[in-house]
């Protein structure tokens, strides 16, 4: 079976590179075709890359607390660009300071994300969810 493509990157002006590399490694290891856009990625770059590569999912990381600003309108933008069936996952330190995760999750779901992960999540959980959502059997 052809590998499913996942576009990953760290959104906004965020330059945290390490976690992003771990995500790339783990997805690659799990049998996905990974397009890693690196750090400081704009919404447009995510969308452009997903269109050209026929991606099944976009993994957005944000570690510096400004994700809420950077991700605003992301789901709508994807829809406008015709990416109706692309899964959107987001994870990291998604807001500044410590706060309850539930309202944060709600906020990102409203922005159009399918799954939202709190700080310290295990990437393997994300991969398991992705396989479930894409109906990929091991």
């Amino acid at each position: 079976m052809e590998k499913s493509t996942v576009v990953i990157g760290v959104i906004g002006a965020d330059v945290h590179a390490v976690g992003n590399r771990i995500i790339e490694f783990a997805l690659d290891h799990a049998g996905f075709n990974v397009v890693n856009l690196g750090v400081m990625v704009s919404q447009k770059e995510f969308v452009d890359a997903a269109i050209e590569t026929n991606a099944k999912a976009i993994f957005v990381s944000s570690l510096y607390g400004q994700g809420e600003l950077d991700c605003r309108g992301f789901g709508d933008y994807c829809k406008e660009a015709g990416l109706n069936n692309v899964l959107l996952y987001v994870g990291g330190n998604l807001v500044i300071g410590k706060s309850d995760f539930e309202p944060v999750k709600e906020k990102y779901i409203t922005m159009g994300f399918d799954r939202v992960y709190p700080p310290g999540s295990d990437i393997n959980q994300g991969i398991e969810d992705l396989k479930h959502d894409l109906e990929i059997m091991d």
Binding site: E2, T5, I51, E52, T53, N54
Partner: peptide, 9 residues
């Protein structure tokens, strides 16, 4: 042109 190899067709 259009699409990466294995990408959008």
């Amino acid at each position: 042109s259009g699409g990466t190899d294995g990408g959008n067709y």
